[in-house]
Every structure is written in structure tokens, then in C-alpha cells.
Design a protein around this nucleic acid. Structure first.
Lengths: 147, 147
DNA sequence: GTTCCTGCAAAAGCTTTGCAGAAGA
DNA sequence: TCTTCTGCAAAGCTTTTGCAGGAAC
């Protein structure tokens, strides 16, 4: 995905976020790497390039990004929060064997619901859990070996 | 909701869970109170009746219940896990003002999705966030007062 | 008698807070 | 100059773990 300094800086200033070096680097990582990284993942990836970097800054940065609508916070993992640069409506699938989170298409606005007539909805989430194809394969191979 | 000792004991033994006093009390609370209590909520409610009760036991008990399919764990709150005795398919709505969680009807199996053909799905969750009617009312009243 | 459960104490792990110095406008 | 940001240290919180005594079967 494109992630030039100019592109990243504009993304930030468009949302009234000062384009500090750390923020640009975090945003760059989110675009470059994609997926649904944790704070720790981002920290470990950027730390070598920015020796002075603190985890607190990652927390601060991501809070700002979420507040300003630049990224989505995903609370699917039991222990750590995850962050997603993809804003379009989609669901999340957590593989309980390998921990990977996959996106899948779901038209959230078309989900038929009942009982929320008087409610103001600001956020919709769909998340599934189970086993991804990779882990399913490995499991079936193991079973064969045991025979 | 009915919650006699016999009923609760049977619910436990049906799932191969030994009906200890603590477990019966926790299960009774879940049936009686309903809703989506946290560990701390349950602990504070039962502690007066069971002075020796430990929070660890609540954790242990709920883990067992979830593992044995007696209750559902809900990870909608950012900080604390919540537990739900209602097993039927339904969505959860978190009011970001008062923190209350509401159930709503959603036929999860009919949600049209794409991209999970090879996946084994074991759990489906739908949760929304926003403002409940009560909090919406209070907000509009405050605005009127400010005029 | 043997297995399982409870609860104390402590630890673990993620996240937040207070604050001083640095950077940016 | 004045506001904002960064990062260290410490604290806050929920949850987990180790272990010894007790309960259940």
C-alpha cells in the first residue's frame, strides 16, 4: 500500500493530528504491514529504528488515531487490544489456534435486527471465532499421523 | 426466572459440573439477576452471604461454566469480561454513557458473509455501541436547559 | 482414599497516570 | 513563547498461578 511521507502527513493533518515523527512511523507501519497489530507488535517493529521510542507513545498515538477516526480499535483478543487501518465495514475472524485475525466481508448495515429502535448506534462489530484453513489442515494431518 | 436449588443443581450436574455451594450461588445469581454481570459485580453481591468467598473462585467458576457451555463470556467492555446466562443467539448493545449492556435480536446465522468458506466457525458475535434511549433523553434535556 | 475445589498470597500482563524535558507552531 | 508531544517511572486493574487446607464422592 502506498505510504510516502507526504501521503502519511496528509492523512494526519486531514484529521487535525500533528505529524510528529513517531506518529508518522506508527501510521506507516499500519499501512505497510496491514493486519491487526497489537501495541507490542508495533513497538517491537519500530523500536530498532527509533531507539528512544516508548510504548507509552504508541498507546498515546493509537488513542489519538482512534479518537480522530483514523484507525479502528478491535477488542477481539482476550488480552490485548488490536488496531486496524481498514475502515470499511468488515467482520473479524479470530483463529483460536494461531491467533491470527482475518477480515471477511459482511454488510453490517443489512443485518436484520430487532429491539434497537430507540437506540443511537455509533459502532457495529461482527466477530467470529474458530479455526483458519491452515490450522484445520495441520490438525487433520496430525490425526492421520496418529493412525 | 426460576432458580430453585434443585433446578440449579440439575443444571450443573447435566454439564458434569460438581454442584458445590459456591457454584450454585454463582449460577443462582446469574439466573436471578440476569443481565451481563462482571466478576466484581458477582463477588460483591455474594460476598455478604459467603464471607469466605474469594474472587478467584468466581473466576474459576465462570471459566468452568463457559468451558462447559453453561454461560457465554462477553468481551464487549474494554476492561472487564462479562458473563451471560442467555445462550440463544442474540446481539449485544453497549451504551457508552451508562455502561449498560442490552440484548437485541439478530439472526446471526442468516448474516450474509463472504470469505470464510474454508474456515471452521465455532462462535459468532455481534455487538454494537452507542447510546441507549435513557441516556439519549438525558442528553437532550441537558441541551434544552442550556438554551 | 483419592480426586477435585476453595481461597490466600503473590505474580503477571496490559494500560493509564504524573511529571519533566523536548519538540513543534 | 506557549502549547503539545514524548518517554521514564510508577501505579492501577483485571486476571492468572502456586500451593495448602478442605470438601466432595
Amino acid at each position: 500500500m502506498e505510504a510516502s511521507i507526504e501521503f502519511l502527513t496528509k492523512k494526519l493533518t486531514n484529521r487535525d493530528i500533528r505529524p510528529s515523527y513517531q506518529r508518522i512511523k506508527v501510521l506507516e507501519y499500519l499501512y505497510r504491514k496491514g493486519g491487526h497489530p497489537t501495541v507490542d507488535e508495533i513497538f517491537r517493529a519500530l523500536s530498532p529504528d527509533i531507539p528512544s521510542l516508548s510504548k507509552v507513545t504508541i498507546y498515546n498515538t493509537l488513542h489519538t488515531f482512534v479518537e480522530m477516526g483514523l484507525v479502528r480499535a478491535i477488542d477481539i483478543d482476550d488480552t490485548e487490544m488490536r488496531y486496524d487501518i481498514t475502515l470499511s465495514n468488515h467482520g473479524h475472524f479470530l483463529c483460536e489456534a494461531c491467533g491470527t485475525i482475518f477480515n471477511f466481508e459482511v454488510n453490517i448495515d443489512q443485518i436484520p435486527i430487532e429491539g434497537l429502535n430507540q437506540f443511537k448506534i455509533t459502532e457495529k462489530n461482527v466477530y467470529f471465532k474458530g479455526l483458519c484453513p491452515n490450522c484445520l489442515n495441520q490438525l487433520s494431518h496430525r490425526k492421520k499421523e496418529q493412525k
